[in-house]
Simulated assay, not measured.
Amino acid sequence: MKNISDKNLFVTATSLALIASILLMLFFEFRGVNALIVVHVILGSLAFVIGGIALISKKGSPLHRLTGKLFYISMTVSVSLTLLVSMMPNHVSPSLFQIGVLSLYFLIGGRRSLAFKRSEHQLLIDRILAYSVISVSLVIMLYSVVLDGEFYPLRTVFGSIGIAFGLIDLILFNQPQNIKRKWLVLHISKMLGGYTAAVTAFFVAQNILSGYYNWFIPTVFGLIYIFFWLVKLKTFKPALST
């Protein structure tokens, strides 16, 4: 897998996911949306397990790199299917769409941050990702309050997280030397954000806790763990010394 690009892996995994969905419809009489959901759950479960291995394995080791890439591909395809389902008739879900965009922002941004250590890396796609997560978060948050006239905790919390991370990215992107030094911090924090999404999905699907606890408890622990790594990597040291 070392010489296979993320793009080729993603295309291959997506093609296999769509083929699996078609087979479910043809031979097991699944409705289209149900077939997509089944494949999404299988890939999400795989990402949950493999991502856990990547999380506890030694950073930079062959095992970490392999499981990290497998986690990225399986989770990215799984989330992409979620976005598709969230826009299908009778299954339209602004909350699901918002969380899907946030998850893809973490996953794609986490992988792309590996290239920040290279001076020739172009930040156009990274800026687009940041602007996209900010825009989607703002629109869905305002849509809920202004048009629906209702307050949705999920959309507000995850929207705020998306806006905060997106703004931090845009600030860092204007500091090329700074971002070159902090590529590891950005990689770890965003991949942890992506894995937190996988854990949250598992909690919600299995209804391990109840109600909003399934959504918020994994998120809180994920943010705490991200903060732990920020401190461990001395991210705040320059700011505190100035």
Rank of each mutant, 00 (worst) to 15 (best):
K7G: 00
K7D: 06
N8A: 02
N8R: 08
F10H: 06
A13K: 05
A13W: 12
T14E: 11
S15L: 04
L16W: 11
A17D: 08
L18W: 13
L18G: 07
I19L: 15
I19M: 13
A20C: 13
A20R: 10
A20Y: 13
S21E: 14
S21Y: 12
I22Y: 15
L23W: 11
F28Y: 06
F28T: 02
F28H: 08
E29Y: 10
F30L: 03
F30K: 11
R31K: 15
V33K: 14
N34M: 11
N34R: 06
A35M: 06
L36T: 03
I37F: 13
V38E: 13
V39G: 05
V41T: 10
V41S: 02
I42E: 02
I42F: 04
L43Y: 06
G44I: 03
S45E: 09
L46W: 08
L46A: 09
L46N: 03
A47V: 04
A47D: 06
A54Q: 15
A54H: 09
L55P: 12
I56G: 10
S57W: 09
G60A: 08
G60W: 02
S61Q: 12
P62Y: 05
L63K: 09
L66I: 07
G68K: 02
G68R: 03
L70N: 09
Y72S: 15
Y72R: 04
I73T: 07
I73M: 04
I73F: 04
I73E: 00
S74V: 01
M75Q: 12
T76F: 02
V77N: 02
S78R: 04
S80P: 09
S80R: 09
S80E: 07
L81R: 03
L81E: 09
L83Y: 06
V85I: 15
S86E: 00
S86Y: 01
S86A: 15
M88Y: 09
M88E: 07
P89A: 06
N90P: 03
N90D: 14
S93K: 05
S95T: 06
L96Q: 03
L96M: 13
L96W: 05
F97N: 01
F97S: 01
V101R: 07
V101N: 07
L102K: 01
L102S: 06
S103R: 06
S103A: 15
L104R: 04
L104G: 09
Y105A: 08
F106D: 03
I108Y: 14
I108F: 14
I108D: 06
G109S: 13
G110E: 01
R111T: 00
R112T: 07
R112F: 10
S113L: 02
S113M: 07
S113I: 08
A115E: 13
A115F: 12
F116V: 00
F116H: 02
K117T: 10
R118A: 14
S119R: 15
E120D: 15
H121C: 07
L123S: 11
L124R: 12
L124P: 02
I125E: 11
I125H: 10
D126R: 02
R127F: 11
I128W: 14
Y131G: 04
V136R: 00
S137I: 05
S137V: 04
L138M: 14
L138K: 00
L138F: 15
L138A: 13
V139E: 00
I140Y: 01
M141D: 00
M141I: 12
L142Y: 00
Y143L: 04
S144I: 01
